[in-house]
Design a protein around this nucleic acid. Structure first.
Lengths: 135, 135
DNA sequence: CATACGGTAACTATAACGATTACAATTAAG
DNA sequence: CTTAATTGTAATCGTTATAGTTACCGTATG
């Protein structure tokens, strides 16, 4: 399947909230901007709420708004809030104990992938929501 | 779906070939090391062949072997050979023309993701198959 | 010719994702 | 008090990618 686009949607959501700061914005409004269903938005908002990035108000005139300045929210924060851990996957097949290569492979790959993921994360940390809006 | 582990399997395959240099290794042998079906191995070997990393010989006593030194093959080469392009995905929903944020979002995200992907790729380029074997 | 391979097509099972419907709880407005 | 709007969730469905599997053809070896 197509790789998951939740980080992109989360960034879009937060950008919309940032563009209407200090207002409560409904999930329906955000959904219209992203062009998807409001529930998809609310699911991601839920994760962002748990991470302390946004807050939600129920009831009529409810909605969501940012808890932090848009220039203090980075893509890395959003990625972490979504619990997206690994960009690379290692095959789950058990190692073949008869094969020396097989026994060492996963550990070696894990280290290499971890370095690459950290490098990517460092770049995500350099991009704030404010910058996304300004572009 | 589980994130795709083809890069990990490709690395495993090439490591096995590197551990038996100058021999033709059958897909069945590699499959035993990876603990999967030989066809899965052959599918990936096919991509590596097209990329000029390995060569295959049909017929009895056939198999695959490396065309390059293991210390000149990096994880980035393998990733490229597999045609793995994007670590991050952007939502496909069309932009809402009425919303300024929506109209600019994908372009801004594209640039940010591209930087992060390049950073990850740079790290993959630092890891050779030799190093994976030595670990 | 028999055997052991690679290459490839076809099919299945599984899993993740996104979209959607539905509904309880909550809050503001009239 | 009633109504309307909204969040937060659960449940379901269709789509899609992956991995695994079976099957078959072509080819090289002996």
């Amino acid at each position: 399947m197509a790789a998951n686009s939740r980080l992109a949607v989360a960034a879009h959501i937060v950008a919309v909230l940032a563009s209407k700061r200090d207002e409560f914005v409904s999930s329906a409004y955000v959904a219209a901007s992203v062009n998807t269903n409001a529930v998809v938005i609310r699911r991601i908002l839920c994760a962002l709420t748990k991470a302390g990035i946004v807050t939600g108000e129920k009831g009529k005139a409810g909605g969501s708004k940012l808890l932090r300045c848009p220039d203090e929210i980075t893509l890395a924060d959003l990625s972490k809030a979504l619990g997206e851990e690994h960009l690379f996957a290692i095959h789950k097949n058990p190692a073949n104990p008869k094969c020396r290569v097989s026994c060492h492979m996963k550990e070696a790959l894990g280290k290499a992938f971890s370095r690459a993921e950290k490098a990517a994360e460092a770049q995500l940390r350099e991009v704030t929501v404010s910058e996304l809006l300004a572009a």
